[in-house]
């Protein structure tokens, strides 16, 4: 049996990219505060990538992720504004995401219209909802201090945390999601459905229920990502996170997800988000233009896909 080395390769590649920028700008890039900054910048995409990876592994796609993130910042900010309770705001963000995900899942399974179309529709509609309830202007809540602490700069006495609390939530989620895909029946059913839906159905797997669960879970993660964005910007912004779904999908694909379903790696997806943020930050630090960053990010995704195809070919030759 051939061992799969793609995750170590990916992590190695990320470290190489990081070191390359570190060599170019040694003073800035090798500091702990830079690591902190990197996590802060990749957090929203990283959390979303975890959710979207589950959806992709089950053979689906979710184009509404960015809109859900924006809607969650709006509902979270409005709740915070009206109640002043951070707990309620957190609940509002997660619930918004969960409900949107459930809606997507139910429409996809009941309508049989295909996830691309259904989530394209909700991408447009949910962005509209966000604009509608916020009255088409950003919501600036009277925020208690600690909503900002999820992503805030570390002070001298909590320096020991290395990365902000939101980063630790991301680490824990990555571990939990990776574990659940491998060691729970639900996780294996997700893989089974993405791998061969008809076979899963014949074997008595409740295909529709599992699919809805992946969209709901994904939605909750987009809600959590929205909370982190709210924490960073202190704003409920209906036009934030535009195109974030594509970055999340890109992170999942860099991490080893196959858009035809059945394959995906949660740790890989998180590293994928870090890779993209590293390129972004690195280019800024070194002073490369935005267009160079965009080309570089595209090339990285292309390389990731090419590596994945080569590996798939090797595995099937081995069989």
């Amino acid at each position: 049996m051939k061992k799969d080395h793609s995750l170590p390769i990916l992590i190695g590649a990320w470290i190489l990219i990081y070191l390359a920028f570190a060599v170019a700008k040694p003073g800035v890039f090798l500091s702990l505060s830079n690591v902190e900054q990197l996590v802060r910048q990749s957090l929203v995409i990283g959390l979303g990538a975890l959710g979207i990876t589950y959806i992709i592994v089950a053979g689906g796609i979710d184009l509404s992720a960015g809109s859900v993130v924006a809607l969650a910042t709006v509902t979270g900010a409005m709740t915070l504004d009206q109640t002043g309770s951070v707990g309620a705001a957190i609940g509002a963000c997660l619930l918004t995401g969960l409900v949107c995900g459930l809606l997507n899942g139910v429409l996809i399974t009941r309508l049989g219209a295909g996830p691309f179309i259904v989530t394209l529709v909700s991408m447009l509609a949910l962005r509209g909802v966000a604009k509608g309830i916020s009255g088409e202007k950003p919501v600036y809540p009277e925020a208690p201090q600690w909503i900002g602490q999820f992503t805030g700069a570390l002070t001298a006495d909590n320096r020991w945390m290395i990365i902000p609390p939101g980063g630790w939530i991301w680490v824990v989620c990555t571990a939990a999601f990776a574990w659940a895909l491998r060691y729970t029946t639900f996780g294996r059913n997700v893989v089974a459905i993405g791998s061969n839906e008809a076979a899963a159905r014949v074997c008595g797997v409740q295909v529709n229920r599992v699919k809805v669960a992946t969209y709901a879970l994904g939605g909750a993660m987009f809600g959590l990502a929205g909370l982190m964005l709210l924490s960073r910007t202190r704003t409920g912004d209906m036009s934030s996170a535009m195109g974030a779904e594509l970055s999340m999908i890109a992170a999942a694909v860099i991490g080893g997800a196959s858009l035809s379903g059945g394959q995906g790696n949660l740790v890989g997806a998180s590293v994928g988000a870090l890779v993209m943020a590293t390129i972004n930050m690195g280019c800024n630090t070194v002073g490369l233009s935005n267009w160079v960053q965009e080309i570089l990010t595209g090339v990285i995704i292309l390389v990731a896909v090419a590596v994945d195809r080569l590996r798939a070919r090797q595995l099937s030759v081995a069989g």
Partner: peptide
């Protein structure tokens, strides 16, 4: 399901 292990395919569902 090609992405599951042999054992998982036997006991799928």
């Amino acid at each position: 399901c090609p992405d599951l292990t042999a054992a998982e395919n036997i006991f799928l569902g």
